[in-house]
Simulated assay, not measured.
Amino acid sequence: MNLYPVLGTTDVQASAGFYREHFGFDVTFDTDWYVSLRHPLPPHAEIALLDAAHQSIPADFRVPAAGVIVNIEVDDVDVLASALEAAGVPIAQELRSEGFGQRHVIVRDPGGVLVDVITPIPPSDEYAASFAADGAAG
Rank of each mutant, 00 (worst) to 15 (best):
L3T: 09
L3A: 10
Y4W: 14
P5T: 02
V6M: 14
V6P: 05
L7R: 00
T9L: 00
T10L: 03
T10E: 01
T10A: 01
V12W: 08
V12K: 05
S15P: 00
A16H: 12
G17N: 04
G17C: 01
G17S: 04
F18A: 10
F18V: 08
F18M: 04
Y19I: 07
Y19L: 08
Y19R: 08
E21L: 00
E21V: 03
G24S: 10
F25E: 06
F25P: 09
F25R: 06
D26P: 01
D26S: 06
V27I: 14
T28Y: 04
F29N: 08
D30N: 01
T31A: 13
T31I: 11
W33S: 14
Y34M: 05
S36F: 08
S36A: 15
L37G: 10
L37Y: 03
P40N: 10
L41S: 09
L41Q: 12
P43S: 04
P43D: 05
A45C: 06
E46R: 10
A48I: 09
A52W: 11
A53I: 10
A53P: 09
H54R: 04
Q55R: 04
Q55W: 07
I57K: 00
P58M: 01
F61P: 02
A65R: 00
V68W: 00
I69D: 02
V70P: 02
V70L: 06
N71S: 12
V74Q: 07
D75A: 13
D75K: 10
D76E: 13
V77P: 14
D78N: 13
V79D: 08
V79L: 06
L80K: 02
L80C: 06
S82K: 08
A83Y: 02
A83K: 13
L84Q: 05
E85A: 15
A86K: 13
A86D: 15
A87F: 12
G88Y: 08
V89K: 03
P90E: 01
E94Q: 13
L95E: 06
E98F: 10
F100N: 13
Q102H: 06
R103G: 15
R103D: 14
H104K: 14
V105F: 11
I106A: 05
P110E: 08
P110N: 09
P110C: 09
G111N: 00
V113F: 05
V113L: 01
L114H: 09
V115C: 09
V115K: 07
V115M: 06
V115Q: 12
D116I: 02
D116F: 02
V117S: 09
I118T: 11
T119L: 10
T119G: 04
P122V: 06
S124W: 00
D125V: 03
D125T: 07
Y127H: 13
A128D: 01
A128L: 10
A128E: 05
A129H: 07
A129K: 02
S130Q: 12
S130V: 02
F131A: 05
A133E: 15
A133I: 11
D134R: 09
D134C: 14
A136L: 14
A136C: 12
G138T: 06
